[in-house]
Nucleic acid binder design. Structure first.
Length: 112
DNA sequence: CTCTTGACTGAGG
DNA sequence: GCCTCAGCCAAGA
């Protein structure tokens, strides 16, 4: 696989689509899986282009489980509604059962 | 090439 | 546990 043609953003989109239904992950977890743990900010930045794609950006939050990117969604509470719709408990823009719904790509996909 | 932006994270107080 | 500071890196102009 030559991903040289793919940008860091494209890789982020690919991993984001791998997030199971009803689970969430952090930008750093995705970045780390991509081999760029220091590029967590790039992950979120990449999500700016997720609009119109099949990328479940609402399943990606910061390491605190805080819906930092909710502000980028169409509505003000759209992101929270989407998460709650998948069984995730969210309150005050923060995931409550984060430990239960957290999904780590590095572990789930196991560094093949 | 240089500068700016950014949906983050870890370390220190 | 909360707040603040600085580092980090990739893409766009």
């Amino acid at each position: 696989m030559k991903e040289e043609t793919l940008t860091f953003f494209d890789k982020v989109y690919d991993v984001a689509r791998l997030i199971p239904h009803g689970r969430v992950t952090s930008y750093g977890a995705i970045a780390k899986y991509l081999g760029a743990a220091r590029s967590a900010r790039m992950v979120g930045y990449a999500m700016n282009g997720s609009g119109g794609k099949d990328v479940p950006a609402h399943r990606v939050v910061n390491r605190k489980g805080l819906l930092t990117g909710k502000h980028h969604f169409d509505g003000t509470n759209l992101m929270q509604q989407l998460l709650e719709s998948e069984g995730i408990i969210v309150k005050e823009n923060q995931i409550q059962n984060l430990d239960d719904v957290f999904w780590d790509p590095s572990k789930a996909l196991k560094h093949e």
